[in-house]
Amino acid sequence: MEIKILKNVMIKNDAIGNDNRLLFRKHNIFSLNIMSSPGAGKTTLLENSLSYLNKKYRIAVIEGDLYTSRDAERLSPFDIPIVQINTDGGCHLDARMIHGALQSIDLNNLDMIIIENVGNLVCPASFDLGEKIKVLVYSITEGADKPKKYASMFSNVDAILVNKIDLATICNINLEMVCAEIKEINPKAELFQISATNKNTLNSWLSWLDNKKAID
């Protein structure tokens, strides 16, 4: 006798993701989940974005890494609440981990939570954390072939920051072609060309974030 179940396996994660979403809404907190490969520039982007965002909003950061608290230490000069999650080899953050981290943050005095996911261009795409906005940092030094190879990640985000554009010539990358291919995979995502080490290239990204926060 066959018994139908028809349940999405992610339902367990997504239920906790929804709890997180309700918690963010209740406290009027705007949340974003930043994903990328290892070394694509998430933490550098955070450092150079926080110097602007930190003046406007009360922010907390959740850092996801397999091991070490190096990223949390890099952000410590901003004097904001930072929770470091170590996954001990785990390849992504899940909703349960975020729910746990939220217990140690005072949500009553916060405008924004930024989650820096584990560096991985595959698994984090599958796990809803309850965030409002999903952001992908894609470094062109990874190669122009990556958007189509990692289509599940590229197609599942609200914004894509094409990073390290200052190295395009050295890496023999045609930026126009890369961006056209990304647009093909995800026509809805907002696309920014940045060099995370250069704050002057972050203005459009930060204005977009301001707008998203304003209408949240």
Partner: peptide
């Protein structure tokens, strides 16, 4: 889209 537990088969 997605990964589902579809069904189980049990002894009659």
């Amino acid at each position: 889209n997605g990964f589902f537990v579809s069904s189980i088969e049990v002894d009659e």
